[in-house]
Amino acid sequence: MSPTKENQWLYTISSKKKLIDLNFNEIWRYRDLLFLFVKRDIVTVYKQTILGPLWYIIQPLFTSVIFTLIFNNLANIPTGNGVPAFLFNLAGITSWNYFKECLTGTSNTFKRNENIFGKVYFPRVIMPMSLVFSNLLKLVIQLLVFIAFYIYYVFFTLEASQVSPQKTIVFLPFLIVLMGILGLGLGMIISSMTTKYRDLTFLVTFGVQLLMYGSAVMYPISYFKEKLPEYAWLVEYNPIAVIVEAFRNMMLNTGNVQISDMIYVTVISVIVFILGLIVFNRTEKSFIDTV
């Protein structure tokens, strides 16, 4: 037998922590698991319900109706550019929902999977990743619903005659990726912190609620600036608000997509995502001792 050389070892288990330890080979080897988790998330959510996957559609539709009644009809928030309020809200909610689901879903990764994580090893990052992917499918379904209403408004009503998508719509997938990694990154940070400090669980539940109001879901940023100029920075520098607004601009042509905004959001999302990975990596190795 040849003498044992260092490079013969397949891997090493040690206490040393690399800053970012994202082993793509390993994640690729576990791709089936990723797929099965995504499938599980989708298949099991609405088991034993009568309406089943229809719930994916019902929730945004009803929310949009309520938002339209309250914010547009009652509070008279303009949508700008003559876009039907319902369509405006549906666009906002569709994009916001994706971010929200990614964030809340990943934010209790460690706590919810304590049982599995405590017994077997697989790349932990598979868990939050699977959520981002299963939410993507929900987003696609909701987008299809949005498009259906879009067609209805454009072709069968007079009120939305000038509504049309912008050319920038080709960047929509990029925008969705940004939402995904921003939600994932933020979720991973929160998830890692909650293993030790449970306070964050409470923060997330109502924090997300509050964040929605600061994320231009039911109003255009320009209107906020006009009405509350001293607080405008809150919304202007909120990356999610910028993404939601850009999403609407692309789909409904409610304004122009600013390149500077997009660069800002991309930088923030990437930073949050990398930060999330670092914190997640540090936590995954020993969280089972503190959770």
Binding site: Y11, I13, F117
Partner: peptide, 12 residues
């Protein structure tokens, strides 16, 4: 499932 506080394990 958890990492050691010190030391390392090498495996083939």
């Amino acid at each position: 499932v958890t990492s050691p506080t010190t030391g390392e394990i090498k495996t083939k």
